[in-house]
């Protein structure tokens, strides 16, 4: 019985490897193909970084960081006002989104259970998928229309909405890593929930929260779509929270497609700053946490 079945399998008696076996060849080809596709996937990363460095470095001098952007046919100039503007915008966004996001995450991870938390987490994830341009028109409606002016506050508000789901998620994840014993120890000596969370659990999770939030801030600094009709743009130094304000990302957008070489060069230089910011924060946070971010 066993012999008849044995014969129906096209088993050779060979146990040895053979390069000419179809499955060996197919396997090798598939492996090569997969690695080529991985290479193709990573190629743009290097190309973009290299181009941004090559094109942006030529304007990397003191003027870049001290002067305001030039008008259309002017020579020279820098992007100092846009750097300051981006810092202001990101600061406003952080002031709004970090406290709200952290406390919301505290609720999710410490005080809630089951269905409500699941729904809120779900909604947070969906919120992080809302196109940034939609956040832009939303902020326009909420802030610009009601205050009657494009402003730093409107831009900061838009960026805050954008950062919010990221802050909630990273904080939520960081809090969940804190071992349960730490909470028990605190509750065990008679601490209230309030003290346990603020004095024990949050500090324990602080490094992870900080890393996650830093990444969120760096990414917000590169966002453009929510700013172009909330913060708008100006060449000049920021003059108030309820005035239009320049930013690096909108500068890149505005100067990207203009025919003036001087402004194009500044667009590349601003891109270089944004890319360096992202690279540095990503690498440092990876080094700090010692694990992959996803």
């Amino acid at each position: 019985m066993s012999t008849t079945t044995q014969e129906r399998y096209s088993k050779s008696d060979e146990l040895e490897r053979s390069r000419s076996r179809p499955r060996t060849i197919i396997g090798t080809l598939l492996t090569i193909l997969a690695f080529i596709l991985l290479g193709i996937a990573l190629l743009p990363l290097f190309l973009v970084i290299i181009y941004v460095i090559i094109r942006g470095a030529s304007r990397f001098d003191l003027n870049l960081f001290t002067e305001i952007p030039p008008a259309a046919l002017q020579e020279g100039g820098g992007i100092a006002s846009a750097i300051v503007g981006t810092i202001i915008l990101v600061a406003i966004a952080s002031v709004i989104s970090i406290p709200i996001g952290v406390l919301a995450a505290v609720y999710l991870s410490e005080f809630s259970s089951g269905r409500i938390a699941r729904w809120i987490r779900f909604a947070t994830n969906v919120l992080s998928g809302v196109p940034s341009i939609i956040i832009g028109i939303f902020a326009y409606g909420v802030v610009v229309l009601s205050t009657g002016t494009f402003s730093a506050v409107a831009g900061g508000f838009a960026l805050a909405i954008l950062m919010l789901p990221v802050v909630v998620r990273t904080t939520d994840e960081s809090l969940q890593i804190v071992p349960q014993e730490v909470r028990w120890a605190s509750v065990g000596v008679g601490a209230s929930d309030f003290h346990t969370v603020l004095l024990i659990v949050l500090p324990a999770a602080l490094p992870a929260i900080l890393t996650g939030t830093t990444l969120a801030v760096a990414r917000a600094a590169g966002e453009t779509a929510p700013l172009i009709f909330t913060a708008l743009f100006t060449r000049y130094w920021p003059s108030g929270l309820f005035q239009p304000i320049p930013s690096l990302s909108v500068l890149v957008y505005n100067y990207a497609a203009v025919p003036y070489e001087n402004q194009q060069e500044l667009a590349w230089a601003a891109s270089l700053i944004l890319v360096l910011l992202i690279l540095l924060t990503s690498i440092i946070s990876r080094w700090a946490t010692g694990k992959s971010t996803y």
């Binding site: 088993k11 146990l15 040895e16 490897r17």
Partner: peptide, 20 residues
């Protein structure tokens, strides 16, 4: 040793071994 061959010799294809 299996069928007079060392399963851990470099020449052996583990896939073939697992089929038997």
């Amino acid at each position: 040793i299996y069928r007079n061959k060392n399963l851990y010799s470099k020449k052996i294809d583990p896939v073939e071994v697992r089929r038997r």
